[in-house]
Design a protein around this nucleic acid. Structure first.
Lengths: 197, 197
DNA sequence: TAGCAGATAGAACGGTCAGTATCTCTAAGC
DNA sequence: GCTTAGAGATACTGACCGTTCTATCTGCTA
């Protein structure tokens, strides 16, 4: 991923991406200009445009980074090799952990899509791609819990997650997490009670 | 509301607000400039700034309008004087109706707050005010259903609503509504079963 | 009929936007 | 020691940003 000819990752590039990630997440996409990012990353304009063909591509790279972090987190939960219900609980708890963390400002993807409503736009599509992966992953896990069709449960889980992530910075995060985790528990108990495996 | 000295509502003003509402909702807040709005409202710059001191105030007026429409809708549901559980169901169905409607683009308030993360900003505060009203209204209704504390149920309802509204334009709206309405039904049945009134 | 508020029209403000061009410096690889 | 790529430093483009201004016209009300 973005090595130069000598095989090293460009320091300027990673500084750029880290800065963009921090500022974009904290302040929004359209609200932040290129000037802010290059100033705080201590990088010149020319360097930015050598690594990213446009601001939109920088935004996409930012979202890809967040997506990868999410996938890594879920990957760790899967690697623990617990029963699927426990894996789902652990994913939910890591979501709650994010909501409770400092400088939480909602879901990077939902925030991004609010600013890029055009479904054909690369930013919008990056969001859709991440969401499809997440829904698929969660649904696959529900398929291993109980016998009922897993799709409704997966959609229910994602809907609660979306609500929790958006409300997490608009209300008391502790209460939001409480509501979210109880909701997830409800889905799981309903499924385990209905058709224990 | 915004009458001139002769007691009439300014036509230019309402045209302005209607246009702003349409474009802001469809395309976002920062992405849309004053020029677009005055051009499509067929109003001059000076007229806009006579009615709204700044773009931010125009955004706030737009959100106030949406908030009022929501309050009117809930008011009609309350006026039907059904049992509280039925009122909640009818509110949920009207939310689902919105999600299924043409040009649905998510929750105007959540979209706005994604662009105005600063909690002190008037736009952000307009969103918080609306959300507080909604949570309070829903919680009051849950207080009339069953005997358990209504706050968790109200928060659960709002969390599902938030998830449904955000996902409604990122996935199949029919499935989103199905998941949402089944979720609301779950909250209500749990409450009615646990402590029938 | 006089007065005045509201709307129209159009120009202009300084600032910021994303993106491009040019030119120098540095450091690593051969 | 030479080549080459990455990075730095500016300066610049043309467009758009929100906002202010002056000047004129219209139509209602007192």
């Amino acid at each position: 991923m973005a090595h130069n000819t000598s095989g090293r990752v460009s320091e300027a590039r990673s500084r750029l991406l880290a800065t963009a990630t921090r500022i974009f997440y904290a302040e929004g996409l359209h609200a932040v200009g290129i000037d802010r990012i290059i100033a705080e990353a201590k990088v010149t304009r020319a360097t930015l445009y050598r690594h990213f063909p446009s601001k939109d591509e920088l935004v996409v790279a930012y979202l890809r980074g967040v997506s990868q972090a999410d996938r890594d987190g879920v990957g760790r939960a899967l690697a623990a090799d617990l029963p699927a219900a426990e894996t789902l609980r652990s994913i939910a708890e890591s979501i709650a952990g994010g909501i409770l963390s400092d400088r939480f400002r909602g879901c990077a993807f939902l925030n991004a899509v609010a600013e890029y409503p055009d479904p054909g736009h690369p930013v919008h599509q990056a969001v859709l791609a991440h969401r499809e992966w997440f829904l698929r992953t969660v649904t696959d896990l529900f398929a291993q819990v109980g016998a009922a069709p897993p799709e409704p449960a997966g959609r229910h889980f994602v809907m609660l997650r979306d609500g929790a992530m958006t409300a997490g910075c608009l209300a008391d995060p502790v209460q939001v997490c409480d509501t979210f985790l109880k909701g997830v528990d409800g889905i799981l108990r309903f499924r385990l009670d209905a058709a224990p495996k």
